[in-house]
Amino acid sequence: LGLPKMEVFQEYYGLPPPPGAIGPFLRLNPGDIVELTKAEAEQNWWEGRNTSTNEIGWFPCNRVKPY
């Protein structure tokens, strides 16, 4: 089972920042694999864990694709 995984195809370094105070941003590099921890199809921002860095944070969902 486990959490859904997504592959990063466009880098994200915190700009634009996540809206409001939902949480810290998650740095993404192309090729990184992100395990989704909070993701809803109608939301533009998802939370996940970058398996390369083990960091957890928020990122724009348009930077990832199904793994």
Rank of each mutant, 00 (worst) to 15 (best):
A21M: 03
W58V: 09
P19V: 05
G14K: 00
G31R: 08
A21Y: 05
K5Y: 09
G57S: 00
D32P: 01
Q43G: 14
P30E: 15
R49H: 06
P16F: 03
V34M: 02
L26R: 00
E7H: 06
Q43L: 12
P24R: 09
V34A: 04
E47G: 04
I33Q: 10
E35P: 00
Y12R: 01
T37R: 11
L26D: 01
P18G: 02
P18V: 06
N54F: 05
I56N: 06
E55R: 12
D32L: 01
G14R: 01
T51P: 06
K5D: 08
K5A: 11
P19G: 05
E35N: 05
T51L: 14
E40T: 15
N29R: 15
N54K: 08
E35Q: 10
G48C: 02
C61M: 07
M6F: 09
F9H: 08
A41N: 14
W58F: 03
D32E: 11
C61E: 13
E35H: 09
R49T: 09
Q43T: 11
L1Y: 05
V8N: 02
N54T: 05
M6S: 05
P16C: 03
P18T: 07
Y67A: 13
S52D: 10
N62W: 04
E40K: 11
I22W: 13
A39T: 08
E42Q: 12
F25T: 11
P19C: 04
N54W: 06
T53G: 03
E35C: 08
L15N: 15
N44A: 13
E42C: 07
V64G: 03
P30Q: 13
G57N: 01
F25N: 04
G23F: 05
I56V: 14
P66Q: 15
Y13W: 10
E42M: 13
E11Y: 10
Y13G: 11
L3C: 07
Q10G: 05
V34G: 01
E11V: 06
N50G: 01
P16S: 00
N54M: 12
C61S: 14
G20N: 06
E7R: 10
G57I: 03
I33K: 08
L3Q: 05
E55M: 14
W58I: 04
C61V: 09
Y13K: 14
L28I: 15
N62V: 06
P19K: 05
R63W: 03
W58T: 02
A21S: 07
D32F: 01
P60L: 03
E47N: 06
L3I: 11
P24Q: 13
V34R: 00
Y13P: 03
R49Q: 10
L1I: 15
L36R: 06
W46P: 00
G20A: 10
E42Y: 08
V34Y: 02
G57P: 02
E35W: 05
G23M: 08
E35A: 08
P4K: 15
F59R: 01
Y67I: 10
P4D: 15
L28D: 04
A39G: 13
R63G: 04
K65P: 04
F9Y: 05
V8L: 00
L1P: 07
I56P: 02
P16I: 02
G14H: 01
W45Q: 00
T37S: 10
V34S: 01
C61F: 04
F25K: 04
R27H: 07
G2F: 14
I56H: 11
G14D: 02
P4R: 15
L3T: 11
P24T: 07
G23L: 05
S52N: 10
V8P: 02
T53A: 04
P18C: 07
A21K: 08
T37Y: 07
A21H: 13
L28W: 00
E42A: 07
E47Y: 07
P24V: 08
I33G: 04
E11F: 06
C61H: 15
R27E: 08
V64R: 00
G31I: 02
T51A: 09
P19D: 09
N44R: 11
G57T: 00
L3N: 09
S52C: 09
L36S: 02
